[in-house]
């Protein structure tokens, strides 16, 4: 198992290095002029040149790359864990990512766990009684939920739960402006407010998460239920389930055995889904003005903020790879055939 994880970590490291290379050069192939964007279209030649010099774009590409990686004397770069400074705000990018990333991770991780907790029993019930009421209703729901885009559901939820019913707070960020945010430790408001013992911030944070999470769960559950149901149906018609019946084992125990067998392959698909959701987080963040990494990435792209784009791509890739690995390890622990 350790060797497996070690091998995978090594592969992930190589993938990240390759990605850093590709992103760095590919971004410079774009027919874009970040200097003009920053200095303004009407800037004088002198101010253009001084901007160019300030960004370091007057140096040869290989020198820029050296500075980015951090092998040039006197500069710190990727190798030291330094993503550089944003061209737009001038702040260190690692600081900006530390601010925005937890918001997104908090949103999608909570949504994922909730969706999983809801979908697994639901998928199981559907598979155990195929064609039953639960199965038909779930089928209708997943068709309905999956046929319309996420941001649209978000807007509808805001309309009903905020405007009409008034249950949810206004979709204007992560916390009510009147509430003092807890001191930043992890960046996750839920965890930080727990650490600080700040009940008010915790409650308000959760309250603000309610709608975005509900939207995510609503859209995510459809495919997960489908996966669980499909795997479970396959397992329920297997020879070993039949044999357990023939051995007089109780239906509950058989369902548990079947569930373990059905979940193992579902895990791999979840990893893929997680990476996909992470990349598409911007829509829901925008609808609820959460200010997560998705929104940060989009603004970086629109501003041609090269260092920020590079950093966001690397960070998201690293998280996806880590989630894949974690789920593969979980899969291998469930399925002994994958070990060794």
């Amino acid at each position: 198992m350790l060797a497996f994880v070690g091998r995978r970590l090594l592969t992930a490291a190589i993938q990240l290095v390759a990605l850093a290379l590709i992103v760095f050069f590919a971004i410079r192939l774009l027919p874009a002029d970040p200097v003009a964007r920053l200095a303004g279209q009407d800037a004088s030649r002198e101010s253009y040149l001084s901007s160019q010099h300030a960004l370091g774009l007057d140096r040869p590409v290989m020198v820029q790359f050296g500075a980015y990686i951090g092998v040039l004397p006197g500069s710190s770069g990727l190798l030291e864990g330094d993503f550089g400074r944003s061209w737009v705000t001038g702040d260190p990018i690692s600081q900006e990512i530390r601010r925005t990333l937890p918001i997104t991770l908090e949103l999608i991780t909570i949504s994922f766990v909730l969706a999983f907790v809801i979908s697994v029993p639901l998928g199981m019930i559907c598979a155990l009684r195929p064609g039953g009421i639960a199965d038909r209703m779930t089928f209708g729901y997943s068709l309905f939920a999956g046929s319309q885009p996420e941001f649209w559901w978000g807007l509808l939820f805001i309309f009903f739960f905020f405007s009409v019913l008034g249950w949810a707070p206004p979709p204007l960020g992560r916390l009510n402006p009147m509430v003092t945010p807890p001191p930043v430790v992890t960046g996750f408001i839920t965890i930080d407010s727990l650490l600080a013992g700040d009940g008010e911030a915790l409650w308000d944070g959760l309250h603000h998460l309610m709608l975005p999470v509900a939207t995510k769960v609503f859209v995510l559950s459809g495919p997960i239920v489908k996966m669980v149901r499909q795997n479970m149906t396959r397992v329920m018609t297997s020879d070993y389930v039949l044999y357990q019946q023939a051995s007089g084992i109780s239906p509950g125990r058989i369902a548990l055995t079947a569930l373990k067998n059905a979940l193992a392959p579902t895990l791999t698909l979840l990893g893929i889904l997680y990476g996909y959701i992470l990349g598409g987080a911007v829509l829901i963040e925008t609808v609820f003005s959460l200010g997560g990494i998705g929104q940060y990435a989009v603004s970086a792209v629109l501003a041609f903020d090269y260092p920020a784009i590079q950093a966001v791509v690397l960070v998201i890739a690293a998280i996806s790879l880590f989630v894949y690995l974690a789920l593969d390890v979980a899969h291998a622990m469930l399925d002994p055939r994958l070990q060794g």
Binding site: S238, G248, K260, N261, D335
Partner: peptide, 18 residues
Amino acid sequence: GRQIGLIVQNPRGSLSPL
């Protein structure tokens, strides 16, 4: 299993792999 037991062909397929 208590009064009537069954043995089938494909024994490995009749055991849960996990």
